[in-house]
Write a protein that binds this DNA or RNA. Structure first.
Lengths: 193, 193
DNA sequence: AGTATATTAGAGGATATATTCTAATTAATC
DNA sequence: GATTAATTAGAATATATCCTCTAATATACT
C-alpha cells in the first residue's frame, strides 16, 4: 500500500556512510547525502527525524556490525594464540566494509553521536559500549588471569594494535593481507612479554 | 607601538586546540574559540584570515611539534631494539601534549586542512607528509634491509601500533606509563617475526 | 603631551544548511 | 475504477555561524 520507496533504509544509510567516509561528518549534510543517494531531501526527513539522527544511524550501523564480528571472535580467544587470530577481525572488517571501517576508525564517536541525537540512538551507543566493556573484561580474565593490568593490556592488544595497524592504510587504501601476520605477532608479544 | 595583544598567537592556537580536542573540528567555531580564549571574534580575524586557516593552524602546530620529536627519535633507530624505544615518542607526546595528541590522533587531517584553507597552509601540510615519508623510507632501509615489505612493516610498527595503543585511552584519559612496555614488545615483534 | 599604530570590541550583513510544508505521484486494496 | 496510504518532490522558511566593518582603546615613540 502506498508508493514504494526508491531506496531501502539500508541503502540510504550505506550511501550516507560513503559520504561520511569520504568527506567526514561535518560535510555529511542532508544535501550531500540526498545527492549521493539520488533522493530528495524531503525523503530523508520522511525516514529520519533529523540530521543528528542520520549521523547517529551511520555510526551505529557500522559499530553494531563490527561489534557483532568482534565479540564473536573474542569469545573464542581462550589462549594467547587464539587471541592473536581473533585480533584479525579488525583488518578483515576493514577489507570487507571499507566505508564503515573509515567511519569507525578515522573519527570520534562523539562527532556522530552528538548531543542533539534522539535518546533512542544514544541508548544504542551506550549499550554497545557496555557490551564491549563486558566482553573485554571476560576475555582479559581468560587470557591474563591474575594480572592487575589484564584489562588494559587486553584492550591495547586486541583493539588498539589492530586499529592502529589498519589506520596506516585507511582511508585511502585497503589494508593489505600481509599485515595480518605483523598484527598477530604484535598482539602475541603485547600479551605475552 | 600600538595596543598590546591580550593573548599571544601561541596561546590563541593552544586555546583553539583545546576546543578542537574537546568538541571536534566541526564545533570549533569562531565563537567557541573566541569564548575559550577570552577574546572577541574580531581579534581572531585580525590574526588569521579565516576559520579554515585557524583549523589548519591548529593541526599544523600539533603535527609539526609531534613530527619534530618523531623524526629525531626515528633517526636514532639503528636497530630493532632502538626502534622499539623510538616508538615510545607517541605515548610520551600524548602525555605531554594531550590536546594536540587528540587533535592528531582522533581526527582526519582533511577535517583540519580543508579545501578552503589558504595555499600557504596546504603547503606546510604537504611538506610534513613528504618529510615523514622520507624518514620512514630511511628508517625502513636501516631496520629491514632487503625486505620488500620493509616500508609497510616499519610504518605499521613505528606509527600504527603506538598510535592504536594510545587511542585506547585518548581522548578521555592519558595513556598510562605501563603501556610503554606493551608497545615496545609489540613493535619488536612486528619488526622481528 | 601629542601622534601614530596595533589591537580590542562587538554589532550587523551575507551565506550556508537544516527543517518544514504543500502538492504530486504511485501502488495496493476494495 | 475509485480510494487510501506511503512516498516522492522540491520550494520556502528558519537558523546558525562566518566574516566584515566602524569605532573605541591602549601603548610606543617623538
Amino acid at each position: 500500500m502506498g508508493r514504494p520507496a526508491q531506496i531501502s533504509h539500508e541503502d540510504l544509510i550505506a550511501a550516507a556512510a560513503l559520504v561520511a567516509a569520504r568527506l567526514g561528518p561535518a560535510k555529511t549534510t542532508i544535501a550531500a547525502v540526498s545527492k549521493a543517494a539520488g533522493v530528495p531531501t524531503g525523503s530523508i526527513y520522511h525516514r529520519l527525524p533529523s540530521r543528528d539522527a542520520l549521523l547517529a544511524e551511520i555510526w551505529l550501523t557500522a559499530a553494531e556490525r563490527f561489534q557483532a564480528m568482534a565479540l564473536a571472535a573474542f569469545a573464542t580467544a581462550n589462549s594467547i594464540e587464539a587471541a592473536a587470530e581473533a585480533a584479525l577481525v579488525t583488518p578483515r572488517f576493514a577489507r570487507a566494509h571499507h566505508a564503515q571501517a573509515v567511519v569507525l576508525n578515522s573519527h570520534r564517536r562523539e562527532e556522530f553521536i552528538t548531543a542533539g541525537a534522539p535518546e533512542e540512538y544514544r541508548a544504542r551507543a551506550v549499550k554497545l559500549a557496555a557490551e564491549l566493556r563486558e566482553a573485554m573484561a571476560n576475555t582479559a580474565a581468560r587470557l591474563l588471569p591474575g594480572d592487575p593490568r589484564g584489562k588494559e593490556r587486553t584492550a591495547v592488544a586486541l583493539i588498539g594494535i589492530p586499529l592502529g595497524a589498519v589506520r596506516v592504510f585507511l582511508p585511502q587504501a585497503v589494508p593489505p593481507q600481509e599485515i595480518d601476520a605483523d598484527i598477530a605477532a604484535a598482539v602475541r608479544a603485547a600479551l605475552r612479554h
